[in-house]
Design a protein around this nucleic acid. Sequence first.
DNA 1: AGTGTAGTACGACAACCATCGAACATGTTG
DNA 2: CAACATGTTCGATGGTTGTCGTACTACACT
Lengths: 126, 126
Amino acid sequence: MDTHVTQGQASAATARLVEPPTVLDEGKLCHPAREEIELAAVLHALSDPMRLRIVAGLAVEDKRTCGSFDLPVTKSTCTHHFRVLREAGVIRQRHEGTTRLNSLRREDLDKRFPGLLDSVLTAAEA
Amino acid sequence: MDTHVTQGQASAATARLVEPPTVLDEGKLCHPAREEIELAAVLHALSDPMRLRIVAGLAVEDKRTCGSFDLPVTKSTCTHHFRVLREAGVIRQRHEGTTRLNSLRREDLDKRFPGLLDSVLTAAEA
DNA sequence: AGTGTAGTACGACAACCATCGAACATGTTG
DNA sequence: CAACATGTTCGATGGTTGTCGTACTACACT
């Protein structure tokens, strides 16, 4: 569990305090590389109703903040679920001001496990 | 958790000790009906490497006995995994003499969650 | 009847997991 | 700076899970 994701800061530093974010860091949040995404981990991440809701929500509208889901759990539990999804490689999280922007790793998942995400999303509508 | 599966013994009792098996009971082993199969349960059942191996094995050759997989776990653990798969609706188990025959519930799964099983099976080959 | 084979049932145990609350970090804004 | 908003970290807790071993059931074969 290490490798990659160490670029992006230096080159973006030029236009820093002029622009708001748009490219911001993603630092500290560690995501698995595409080839490192494991099937069992993805299936486990998706096997929780709460997380399934999150993923279904992101499928409808990407780049949503954690709070925008208003799930029936506390903030800390929420953090937990987003981390599970992130570490499994299902979503990507970026810092953006005081919030986190979450997005589905559609392309990575489709390349690695073709058809899986779509079938789960279709199945989740029931 | 109840419903269905209460027939089969009485009517089959007529030709009992004449024939070997071929149609045998399935009694006691409770399987969910197709409409009762839940996505989260299926994903959870598939999120274990050992169970993934079982399912992949059944995809190659159906109707295999529990012992034919020689998994690196004891018999009781084995029983446990097969039960999880059965109760989630992923496999069907039938008594047959001294063994249990396991088969994938392909049709049920395909009808209920189209494409899911196939994408998982494809993904599992890595 | 006796031995063997295939699997289940039950109890135990350690690891994991979803959940919470309280305290903290960080960025935004009055 | 102070107040606020959005999340994270940490410890605790109760429930679930994967694993095992031992004991048990059920069928088959000699």
